[in-house]
Design a protein around this nucleic acid. Structure first.
Length: 578
RNA sequence: GCGCCCGUAGCUCAGUUGGAUAGAGCACGAGACUUCUAAUCUUGAGGCCGGUGGUUCGAAUCCACCCGGGCGCACCA
């Protein structure tokens, strides 16, 4: 797509050229920092198509005043053929109006690039590892996992659109105490499957019914061989089988939302391969790990607190509140100790790392960022995006989820009840760092108020119109695009923002911007559509004018293409009819 | 006590990384369906952008301190 430049990129070039001309003429000193210059559509369309703050940004360092510089700049910009007018406004904004031909050209660019319109090269092909979900493999996915899963998946797609290679990774915590609990829980279900009356599930074990089939499968495979043996004889086997079964379940759950990871990394394998030891050795050699005493936890009183000497990582050197243990007193790795090595491993296979975490892990962000900074010697960009909690509501009252009780709302239930597209879009029409309520009854009952239908409806209307046009023998054509008027070009102007929006959203790692943009685009489309309700001459299909109809259908095709592309980033289906 | 996130219309939320007169949806008022799909559109009303100072041409946005809500503060995961 090298020769098909979007209109914003083109004009950014025009302004740079105009500034170069002023420097050459001596109006402006050379070498000024142009990084703060923006070129964007003004909020108020009455101000024109494009607006730049160049004069205001450069006036002070250039030793002049904004108005004077703006006038000089305007003198250069009016020389550009596609500039219809250039005006100075307010404190020194330059507002540009773009000739219709340039917008028509943009419309053709959409058609030419089609499903690739909006893709960008800003990522430069660099590899970004996005780690998301990473829920403990001890049960099915529940609603608490949903938001991070959707946001991570959409972010991964967005980064691909922005020109990155993306690794979608899931970290499997199959090495801690919780998977031993899982193994014991499954052993109980195994004995149950063999006919033993196990009664109520004891406190401290996972009570969920989802473990029943796992126990049954083990009973079918091994008979009563492990029923009466001590734990040491079956723990590893049962743990392995149980984790594998849970992972299978998790993958199936995620598939319901259209989510598939490229890579599942096992914590147990990482430890078996000695990766934490390697990291520790390197850190000790650099005086970043030492043996010391952990401070007592603050803000709560622990009766059984006893200071012990542990290997500590110097995270305080990187802004953390205290140094963090990488091993427990029994010699095994802490979660952090293994996680550190895991991130180091990821950093070796990617140019940048992004983790999507639930907000309940916010307290550990500093230490892991510190560890990555230390182990990569600051060489790898690494950010942790925190996704705030979803308060699940039912009939206006909070609905508590607890994995231990087994009484939780599963992701599969929700996906089945409200549908993948609604779940995904709903999770993405909110910035992730804000808390959100997900009211079951509301989303199910009032689903037609959901923005996702509004956007999908726009696409369905377009497809329907194209079908009707085809039935009447008229297909979209670009032969008479000059027939498109101001209202049609307004639609193109909204559509033309898509590429810069993809770049901005990717740079900010904020896929929700795409969702809000699509809502705006759909709104502009629906508004245009309704012109045709009042005036048949404004419809896409105008019975007596085949040339105009062909041009408008061409426009409709491209608008539909962008809705399709945007929804593709979000993993939501662009439906043909509703 | 400390750390992180949030606070914008009655409600749910955007706000293009510091731009011009702060925007949508829902709800409320008034209108448009023998339709290219009304799951839509047009229009009215609704604001101390939590508060106070600061930074500058310019602040909802950045900084400091308060107020309020959420999450977290174990060798857990």
């Amino acid at each position: 797509m090298t020769d098909t430049q979007t209109i914003y990129a083109t004009f950014s070039g025009h302004i740079a050229a105009a500034l170069d001309a002023l420097e050459a003429a001596g109006t402006l000193p050379g070498g000024l920092n142009r990084a703060a210059i923006t070129i964007e559509p003004p909020r108020d369309p009455a101000h024109g198509d494009l607006s730049t703050n160049a004069a205001m940004v450069l006036a002070k360092p250039g030793g002049t005043n904004p108005r004077a510089l703006a006038e000089a700049l305007v003198g250069e910009l009016v020389k550009v053929p596609s500039v219809a007018s250039a005006e100075i406004a307010g404190p020194g904004f330059i507002n540009l109006r773009i000739a219709p031909g340039a917008w028509i050209a943009e419309l053709r660019a959409i058609a030419a690039l089609a499903a690739d319109y909006g893709r960008s090269q800003v990522g430069g092909g660099s590899t970004v590892n996005v780690e998301y979900v990473s829920a403990n493999p001890t049960g099915p996915m529940h609603m608490g996992h949903c938001r991070g899963a959707v946001v991570g998946d959409a972010l991964a797609s967005l980064l691909e659109w922005a020109g990155h290679k993306v690794i979608r990774e899931y970290y499997v915590n199959d090495a801690g105490g919780q998977v031993d609990v899982l193994a014991r829980s499954v052993h109980l279900r195994y004995r149950e499957a063999l006919g033993e009356a196990v009664g109520a599930i004891p406190e401290g074990l996972y009570p969920g019914d989802y473990l029943v089939p796992v126990g049954q499968a083990l009973a079918a495979e091994f008979g009563d061989r492990y029923a009466a043996l001590p734990e040491a004889d079956w723990l590893v086997l049962f743990r392995t089988r149980a984790v594998a079964a849970m992972l299978e379940q998790i993958k199936a759950d995620l598939a319901l939302l259209g989510i598939a990871h490229d890579l599942f990394s096992s914590e147990a394998e990482l430890q078996a391969a000695g990766k934490p030891e390697e990291a520790e050795a390197w850190l000790r050699a650099h005086d970043l790990v030492y043996d010391g005493e952990l401070e007592a936890p603050k803000g709560k009183t622990l009766d059984d607190w006893e200071p012990v000497e542990l290997p500590l990582f110097r995270s305080t050197r990187f802004g953390d509140d205290q140094d963090r243990p990488i091993k427990k007193s029994d010699g095994s790795w802490t979660y952090f100790g293994a996680d550190m090595a895991y991130h180091y491993q990821k950093a070796q296979n990617a140019d940048a790392l992004v983790d999507i975490w639930g907000a309940d892990h916010a307290g550990t962000v500093k230490r892991i960022k510190a560890a990555v900074a230390a182990l990569t010697e600051g060489g790898k960009p690494f950010e942790v995006k925190l996704v705030q909690m979803v308060q699940l509501m039912k009939g206006g009252a909070p609905f508590k989820m607890s994995k231990r009780s087994g009484n939780f709302v599963t992701l599969a239930d929700v996906a089945e009840m409200v549908g993948k597209d609604v779940v995904r879009f709903t999770m993405l029409t909110r910035k992730p760092e804000a808390q959100m309520d997900f009211d079951f009854d509301k989303v199910v009952e009032a689903s037609k108020d959901n923005p996702v239908f509004y956007v999908q409806y726009a696409h369905a209307r377009i497809r329907s119109t194209l079908r009707k046009g085809a039935a009447e023998g008229i297909t979209p054509a670009d032969t008479d695009l000059a027939l498109l008027g101001p209202e049609e070009l307004d639609l193109v102007k909204v559509a033309a923002q898509f590429p810069r929006l993809v770049e901005a959203a990717a740079a900010a790692r904020e896929p929700h911007r795409i969702a809000f943009y699509l809502y705006d685009l759909a709104g502009a489309f629906h508004a245009y559509w309704n012109l045709g309700n009042d005036n048949p001459e404004k419809r896409f299909i105008v019975a007596h004018d085949a040339r105009l109809t062909a041009a408008r259908l061409y426009l409709a095709t491209q608008i539909g293409q962008i809705v399709h592309n945007g929804l593709a980033i979000l993993g939501v289906e662009a439906v043909e009819e509703m």
